[in-house]
Computed example of a mutant assay.
Amino acid sequence: MSYLPVAGEEWMERTATSRRGRLRRLGLLLAAVLVVAWAGHHLAEAGASWTAAWASISQVGWRWLLLLGTVWLAGLWVHTFVLDASLPGLTHLRALTLNLSGSAVANVLPLGGVAGTVLNLTMVRGWGHTNRDFARFVVVSKVWDVAARLMLPVVAVVALMAAGRLRPWPPWLGVAVLAAVAGALLVAASLGQARPLLRLVTLAERLARGASPGWTGAVAALLDGVDRLVRRRWRPLTAGMAGYCLSEGVLLWLCLTAVGVTVPVPVLLAGLAAARGLTLAALTPGGTGLVETGAVAVLIGLGVDATGALAGVLLFRGLVFAAEIPVGGIAVLLWLAARRRGDRPTPA
């Protein structure tokens, strides 16, 4: 017989679950750090010199930096078309503010995407949108972003095979195809064809018996009403995401060129696919460490000079990751200043 009230039992259960969750996240973070340390050591064994890489970056002139910064900002502006399409009534400037501020918070905290989302929710509500609008905005924008990251590896592998840089049917082609299928399922679900995705979620829920139930219902609730928005706005969503991926590819190519490395387009696609795909493993802030070592390893494996690949990827990440922190911080300060002045929200 239990002597604890039911509410007390529920509280203890929630506390234990929260403690297990924190320990699990800490364990994943520690594992990520160990993987990064191991990978960094092997990059040095492969001939990558960190000292020489930093020296190459330090020699990049101001004209190159100005060009790289311009391309980076242009890519962020192109991405605002995806955000605008995901939230009717959102302006490009506000979309850029959401992107930079959310990224700034997420890039400084382990698993900081939740904190960035909360900040963005506060902003959106202040601009006159509802919680429901924001939930749909997050689902649509994230679905198209994740789908693009999942589909890019198969494009890179096919390009490498066509260029003769990979033997026919390499072993990781299957992994790339599975990732692309997962991305296609996400897009199909956002267009109203959610049954295949929900079946997979139900299967995962049955396999994870020790996990919290209700995954299928939660996914179905998230997708509710999304298809009506996506069917109206799939063109700007697709064009904006394609333009953003292209801008990041151009930025990576320019970063490698700036440090004296020339790579063919298929190899560039492979490096970009690794850099974008590994950000999904958000065990560290923005995938720091995992993204850099993974992208450099892919480039080295495809014949790029080890030190040059390291320098180019570090320069690229300095823009798409590190630069977003101070610039996003400025965006947050400007938003706070406008909020303090009592600017009225724009009806959505």
Rank of each mutant, 00 (worst) to 15 (best):
T117H: 07
C255F: 03
S212K: 15
G240R: 00
R125P: 01
A95G: 15
R235Y: 04
W215C: 06
T216K: 10
R206W: 11
T257C: 06
A311H: 01
L100K: 00
I330T: 08
L200G: 13
L87T: 09
G113W: 06
R209W: 13
M151Q: 15
D145T: 10
V250L: 07
A258H: 03
V124E: 02
A311S: 02
G112A: 08
V298R: 02
W62C: 03
W64V: 01
A135E: 07
I330G: 02
R94E: 12
L299F: 03
A156D: 08
A106S: 13
L152V: 01
T216W: 04
G287K: 01
A7Q: 14
R94V: 09
V304K: 04
R20Q: 13
E9V: 15
G61L: 05
L178V: 13
V265R: 13
A55I: 11
A135L: 06
L283W: 11
L203G: 04
T122M: 04
W38H: 13
S2P: 11
V118I: 14
L67K: 02
V304A: 11
D84W: 08
G249C: 02
G89N: 09
V230G: 06
Q59M: 08
L66Y: 00
A162R: 13
L302R: 04
L186A: 10
A115M: 05
W77A: 00
A274K: 00
L336W: 09
L30Q: 08
V177L: 15
A338F: 10
P236A: 08
A239W: 13
P347L: 03
L222F: 10
V265I: 12
L186F: 12
G128S: 04
L207E: 09
S18W: 15
T279L: 10
T346Y: 03
G328T: 01
A180D: 05
V157H: 02
L173Y: 09
T70L: 14
L278C: 07
W169E: 10
W127K: 02
L283E: 07
C245T: 05
D305E: 13
R132D: 07
L87F: 05
L185N: 10
D133T: 09
P326I: 09
R149C: 15
A39W: 13
R235Q: 06
L314R: 05
L178D: 12
R63M: 09
A242H: 03
V261S: 00
G128V: 03
T122V: 14
H42Q: 15
A297Q: 08
T17Q: 14
L252E: 00
H41C: 11
A180E: 03
W144K: 00
V230T: 11
E248Q: 05
P347A: 04
